[in-house]
C-alpha cells in the first residue's frame, strides 16, 4: 500500500467518524458542528488525493468556514436544547427507518463495485488555472446563474430573519 492510499483510508475513517459524531451527538449541538468540520476538512483531503485541488480549497473555505459558522450562530442564537428519546411508538418507527437506511447503504456498497483503475491525471489537473478556464469559458452562463441564486438566497435570508416586515 503506497502513501496516498494510506492517506485516503485515514481520511475516510475521519470522514465517517465525523459524520457519526454529527448525527449521534444528542447532548451538544456545538460538538456536532465541530464533528461536521472534521468531516468537511477530511473530505477536502480526499479531494486533493483525487486531483481536485481547487475544490478542496473551496471545500475548506465554504464548508469548514462559512457554513459551520452559520450553524454555530444558529445554535448560539437560540441556545442548545437537550433532545430526549421520542415516545414508545415513535422510537420503533425511528429504529425501523435506521434499519432501512442501513440496508440501502449495504445495497449501494455491494452494487457499486468493479470500477476500473484510475488513469493517470493530465498535467495540472484540477488546479486553479484549469478550473478557472473551465468556469469562464464553457460554464460562464452557469456561473452567472449561480450568482443569481446566491443573490436570491441573500435577499430571502434577510427577509426571513427580519423581525417584522414593514
Amino acid at each position: 500500500m503506497n502513501f496516498p492510499t494510506l492517506l485516503f483510508y485515514t481520511f475516510a475513517l475521519l470522514v465517517v467518524a465525523g459524520a457519526v459524531g454529527t448525527i449521534a451527538n444528542i447532548r451538544n449541538t456545538v460538538a456536532a458542528a465541530m464533528s461536521l468540520v472534521l468531516t468537511m476538512v477530511s473530505l477536502a483531503g480526499i479531494y486533493v488525493l483525487l486531483g481536485a485541488h481547487m475544490i478542496a480549497v473551496f471545500q475548506i473555505m465554504v464548508y469548514g468556514g462559512a457554513i459551520v459558522v452559520l450553524f454555530l450562530f444558529a445554535v448560539m442564537l437560540h441556545g442548545d436544547e437537550h433532545e430526549e428519546l421520542p415516545p414508545g411508538r415513535m422510537r420503533l418507527v425511528k429504529a425501523a427507518s435506521v434499519l432501512v437506511a442501513i440496508c440501502v447503504m449495504a445495497g449501494l456498497v455491494r452494487a457499486l463495485v468493479g470500477f476500473p483503475e484510475l488513469p493517470a491525471a493530465p498535467v495540472g489537473f484540477g488546479r486553479a488555472r484549469q478550473v478557472g478556464i473551465a468556469l469562464y469559458s464553457d460554464y460562464v452562463l452557469l456561473v452567472e446563474m449561480v450568482s443569481q441564486v446566491l443573490l436570491a438566497a441573500i435577499v430571502g435570508a434577510l427577509v426571513l430573519a427580519k423581525r417584522k416586515i414593514d
Partner: peptide, 30 residues
C-alpha cells in the same frame, strides 16, 4: 492508486449517515 470502489463506497456510507441523521434527529439544526 486509490481504489475507486472504496471512494464510491465511502460516498454511499456518508449519504446513508446523512439519511439516518435526517430521519432520526429531532433538532432542525442537526
Amino acid at each position: 492508486m486509490i481504489p475507486l470502489d472504496h471512494v464510491i463506497g465511502l460516498s454511499a456510507v456518508l449519504f446513508s449517515l446523512g439519511v439516518i441523521g435526517v430521519l432520526v434527529r429531532r433538532n432542525l439544526i442537526v
